[in-house]
């Protein structure tokens, strides 16, 4: 009897979750497992045969200095963009929840960059950095703009950071606005009556209550930072001379340009582990700081 009941329940469950499970299994789980399998082979991406090479690809990852350099650059990029995106995003949200005019217009305006795809955005800013700013720099004799930022390794790195911040801070702003609006007014009012000034209110009430929003935003910007590819390829294309090649692009080129699919896949897997660990730590650590109002 109980087995009859079990099958009944299973049927209903399958009815609802079956199609999704099936889709999830075929498009996420299977490719993922197959991808891991490929890291143990020497496949070049097209040939019909490949042979098993054991841990060779993973040893090659350890040896591949260029991979670790690009990973280091990515870390630097992630660190800078996470800080800048969230600081700018929070600042915008804070300003746009105070009493200023044309709030909605500003909100829409700051959010717009997020609606443009990374590739187009990259080309837009490429034009700005290598043509518009250079023209302005030469015209008004501003030294820092007189030559293209994209031609200099350090400045090209900063262009990536600047454009990413510009792209995502509007998005994070929306999340922060939602968080700010949820803070109970009476708490802030009570604090003001007790004599807390704006800064104290921000530090003692708003920030602690905003932790859930921070978790989401930092998580989103972390993950996007690690995975960035479209902007990288459209804005700097890794140049000048591969100095701004971030890790996703490096892995992609390893697999498809150098036609070392197994090795590229192994690097992608290492990257996956690193990103998973970093984001899990982030979520775990920040969850602890959540407070109830």
């Amino acid at each position: 009897m109980s087995s009859q009941k079990f099958f009944d329940r299973l049927k209903v469950q399958l009815l609802f979750s079956g199609p999704t499970l099936f889709a999830f299994f075929t498009v996420v789980i299977l490719p993922f497992l197959y991808g891991i399998y490929l890291t143990f082979t020497n496949w070049d991406g097209v040939s019909t045969s490949h042979s098993f090479v054991g841990m060779k690809n993973y040893l090659a990852v350890l040896d591949d200095a260029a991979f670790w350099t690009s990973l280091y650059k990515t870390m630097k990029y992630v660190l800078l963009t996470v800080i800048l995106i969230n600081v700018v995003g929070f600042f915008l949200a804070y300003m746009l929840t105070t009493e200023i005019r044309a709030k909605n217009l500003f909100r829409a305006g700051f959010f717009t960059p997020n609606l443009i795809g990374g590739i187009i955005l990259g080309f837009l800013w490429q034009f700005i950095f290598s043509n518009v700013l250079v023209y302005i720099g030469e015209h008004f004799k501003i030294g820092i703009f007189s030559s293209s930022w994209l031609a200099d390794p350090d400045k090209a790195f900063w262009t990536l950071v600047i454009v990413t911040t510009w792209q995502y801070s509007g998005y994070m702003m929306v999340i922060y606005i939602a968080g700010l609006m949820n803070i109970p007014k009476e708490l802030l009012e009570a604090a003001s009556i007790d004599g807390a000034n704006a800064f104290v209110r921000l530090r003692k009430i708003i920030l602690p209550l905003m932790v859930p929003s921070f978790i989401v935003c930092v998580f989103l910007s972390l993950q996007r930072g690690f995975m960035v590819y479209d902007l990288n390829i459209a804005l700097t294309n890794g140049g000048p001379y591969k100095s701004t090649q971030l890790v996703s692009m490096y892995v992609y080129q390893k697999a498809f340009l150098s036609q070392k699919y197994g090795a590229g896949q192994a690097e992608a897997f290492v990257l996956f582990l690193i990103v998973a660990i970093v984001t899990l730590i982030q979520v775990y650590v920040s969850k602890k700081r959540e407070v109830e109002a």
């Binding site: 591969k242 080129q253 340009l257 150098s258």
Partner: peptide, 20 residues
């Protein structure tokens, strides 16, 4: 040549061109 020759060696040549 190997498929990534142009990209890798191209980057070395760019560094040389830029006197790096």
């Amino acid at each position: 040549l190997p498929p990534d020759h142009w990209s890798q060696v191209g980057a070395f040549m760019q560094q040389y061109l830029d006197n790096k």
